[in-house]
Design a protein around this nucleic acid. Structure first.
Lengths: 191, 191
DNA sequence: TCATAGGTATACTGGTCTGTGAACTTTCGC
DNA sequence: GCGAAAGTTCACAGACCAGTATACCTATGA
């Protein structure tokens, strides 16, 4: 289920170029010719590596997911207490938003890929499930009451901050504050 | 700034068909030939009415926005008290979600239309601004403390519920509950 | 030494895309 | 009855699309 990344140098360049183009211009709007040109590679190489555009899309989202998860894990590890750790994904989101200002790539991808049998569909859907479960695990570890309900609320706040990111106004700060006060309210009293 | 809707019968059929197709399959993925066929109209008529696909996209989003706003206004008017009215958009969202299960059409559209000069861009961006301002107006009318901060938090909850809608699990109930308790906490004590 | 894997170069297929041109028909209010 | 607006028919332009075919080059390592 967890495959390694035996990707050739050309393969990595293709994914990097495609990721940027898909995120900033949309998946359907970007052609494989442009991706090949941007990554300094022939279209033949692209097809030898990924087989089809659909599978390249999946590879891009998988790579993005991998990067996002490791950022969140680092933010969780950097926290001093289990209670702080519950809202660590909001800290990760602040970092992430510095270089990703066009909303959530997974939501955006699903907007263009309505077919559940598309190889990228499952990756995008799992991404949200993973975060929700992480919130629940962290809430449980911090001793919060009602971790399931809390996790859903935190996910909504997180996705809301991400979805409103392209619009003017700082929504991330407000939702982070709200998330923290929710966690504090459901956490056991200190010592 | 506010033009009427002197749309011909064919024009209305085109918008209706295009709206459904754009929302369910993505804007770039849907061709004008298909839209013309679905609405029982010639491609020539489509271009006579809207000039370009881009302007048709804008007309579809404008129509959707109009429908959404009137639903929200009706929900606000149906409320018994100013405090209840603040969270009325969440009631409207519950109704709306019955027939719209692919997330927010405006967020989805912006994912495919990165160019701010696209005729549809401003419509999509204004939609969120309108809702945020409505929240603030309603919060002020209800005598809530810190209406600006509250409005931003309510917007985030609303957009979060909308964004997570395509995924399994009922996120709308949890965010509606949270929204109501936020409003109650900042509202003045009864009588 | 030589097979293999990764990659280049280039031309091509068959299809779809948005958008236009030009001439014809239908409907309806004045 | 007539003129204008709305709509039809259909061919067509020119660009772009995903994906393939063929032939060649160049490392590396057994």
């Amino acid at each position: 289920m967890r495959e390694a990344h035996p990707m050739t140098p050309a393969g990595r360049r293709i994914v990097a170029a495609a990721e940027e183009l898909f995120y900033n211009r949309g998946i359907t709007a970007v052609g494989v010719d442009l991706i090949a040109e941007r990554s300094g590679v022939t279209k033949r190489t692209l097809y030898n590596q990924f087989g089809s555009k659909d599978h390249l899309v999946a590879a891009c989202l998988a790579e993005r997911d991998r990067r996002w998860r490791s950022l969140v894990r680092a933010a969780v590890d950097a926290c001093g207490s289990p209670v702080e750790a519950v809202t660590a994904p909001f800290d990760a989101l602040r970092t992430w938003s510095g270089t990703n200002t066009r909303g959530c790539a997974f939501i955006n991808a699903l907007a263009e890929l309505p077919d559940p049998s598309h190889p990228a569909y499952r990756i995008a859907a799992n991404q949200k499930l993973w975060l929700r479960n992480l919130f629940e695990e962290l809430a449980t570890a911090a001793g919060c009451s009602g971790p399931a309900t809390l996790a859903t609320q935190l996910l909504v706040l997180h996705e809301g901050a991400l979805a409103t990111q392209p619009f003017p106004g700082d929504t991330l700060s407000g939702s982070t504050d709200l998330a923290r006060s929710l966690v504090r309210a459901s956490a056991p009293p200190r010592r």
